[in-house]
Design a protein around this nucleic acid. Structure first.
Lengths: 213, 213
DNA sequence: ATATGAATTAAACAAATGATTAATAAAAAA
DNA sequence: TTTTTTATTAATCATTTGTTTAATTCATAT
């Protein structure tokens, strides 16, 4: 029998088996590290310490297992993002600070995620299409507050998509370059994370300077 | 007999055969589109319209073919980058304008390159290690000019690695998000490129605002 | 024209891979 | 307990994949 769950650390009622989680956790780890094609079903079976046949028993195929993991990962990630963007109580500047902190923490916890997602997305943009949260970003309180600032003459006017793109760029891209940055600056993984943590304070200031008149 | 050449559009003396180029061009296109693992030798043979055995005849293995292509691609890309950074005649602000224009043009011409490189790099950082140009960026005229501006009190002081990272982030990252941006903004590929071309002018201004006191 | 080496081809090989099967063990329901 | 459903296992299948081989064609130099 095949069952569906959102993710291993989920609140929803779970009567799923233990091996099902073991498979998903191992598969997610391997997919993130090596990508879809380079990960074999035997890799997953070995890593999760289950019998190879169990993968097909629970998930029917490697492709389906991948799609479930991709969906859940995206959903979890985007949900957390939208959360900050839509907080009614915080100002734009507070949001910038909050999302820098939160996103950097999130990516430090799962540094392979951005490259993985953007890479797999390129071949199969449909996964993202299904995400309800995707389009919400441009209609978020965050964007509204920026546009409000433009109206009031506080901020320079520019298409909000540029604004949002810039914020995400300076937050996410450095992680995708981590191998390069670590190499040219001779940093350990720990050093690199310190550098990223520095950026939590720097990024909000940079963005404000970028948009302030 | 196996011969080595830098790239198909190279100046160096070429007595390489036609099929060798055909293989490399097809392989590069496929590797960029699907990644190393998802690309099969038969894919490459079909795309380049050569016999499967010719791949091993000229390049000995898929892995070696990939590494040659990766090296050449990186070399070409980084060379062009360093070129702008080290121009003695231009000011920092001019360099910002020039590199925005040049890099955006480069990536529009080969939009899959950044994601491909950063993704494959994650598994195999050695390819980048071999690049002589990598470390040069931090010792470039570009960085020196920024630090000079800091000394003169014109620019805010921050570790140059942050400065360089930010510039590259706002230039490159949007391309890596192109599927997402196109989706949430309902853009065609053409529209997206128009948006990227807009950024050629915007980015230098943003960066200056970011660093100027 | 002929001989020699390079280029090309079709066929095949061995290993890897996604998936299935049939038998067995464990758990749940009767 | 017995029966029935669910979970697990080892073995196997059919393709796919990277690579090689042996034969053949092509080009060039003698």
């Amino acid at each position: 029998m095949i069952k569906f769950i959102l993710c291993s650390n989920n609140i929803v009622d779970n009567n799923y088996s233990n091996t099902e989680i073991k498979i998903k956790d191992a598969a997610k780890s391997l997919f993130l590290k090596k990508g879809y094609s380079a990960t074999t079903t035997r890799d997953i079976a070995r890593e999760s310490d289950i019998n190879l046949a169990m993968l097909n028993y629970y998930f029917r195929s490697k492709r389906r297992l991948f799609e479930i993991i991709m969906f859940e990962t995206l959903y979890e990630f985007l949900s957390k993002m939208v959360e900050v963007y839509n907080d009614e109580k915080t100002s734009l500047e507070q949001k910038l600070k909050l999302c820098s902190e939160k996103y950097i923490d999130m990516i430090i916890a799962e540094p392979l995620l951005p490259t993985f997602v953007l890479n797999e997305l390129k071949n199969n943009p449909t996964s993202f299409l299904k995400m309800p949260t995707t389009k919400m970003i441009m209609k978020s309180n965050f964007v509204a507050q920026y546009q409000d600032g433009v109206k009031k003459g506080i901020y320079r006017k520019v298409d909000p998509i540029h604004f949002v793109t810039n914020v995400l760029s300076v937050i996410v891209f450095p992680f995708m370059c981590s191998p390069i940055i670590m190499k040219i600056e001779n940093l350990s993984k720990k050093d690199f994370n310190i550098m990223m943590n520095e950026r939590k304070k720097l990024i909000p200031a940079w963005i404000i300077q970028m948009i302030k008149k």
